[in-house]
Amino acid sequence: MSENRWVWQCERVIPSETGASSPILQEILDQLEKQAWIQHDIFSVHLAMEEALVNAIRHGNRLDTSKQVHVACRVSPELIRIEITDEGEGFDPSSVPDPTDPAHIEAPSGRGLMLMRSFMSRVEYNDVGNRVVMEKERAKQDNQERE
């Protein structure tokens, strides 16, 4: 992941409670609005962060209120990078079944990781599987004008 000219950054620690991630999420989305990112990019970051934060709180920390979720975000004129770390045991992303497989298509859950990968430019987990780093490259100028 290349070096970037960061123009905004923040770090927050949130409790493992549903809804606890709303303020930091809104803070980041507001920052993208302020820097005039297009709505599709903002939607993409919103969706990926929702899914990653739910994974960290519900599946990583298992709603254990003694555990926290660490969120770090940096924004450059061309890129947003988000790191989300939970205090759980981690997981192996390659073990998650393909939700589009006919055997899983009607499963009520298991689509978050696929959506994160589809809507972001890069999604990488650490070896333990309790930290995800996601990047979204800002849409090119042509797309900005079209928007």
Partner: peptide
Amino acid sequence: FMSSAALGK
């Protein structure tokens, strides 16, 4: 906006 949890429902 809706997340994948809503898809499950």
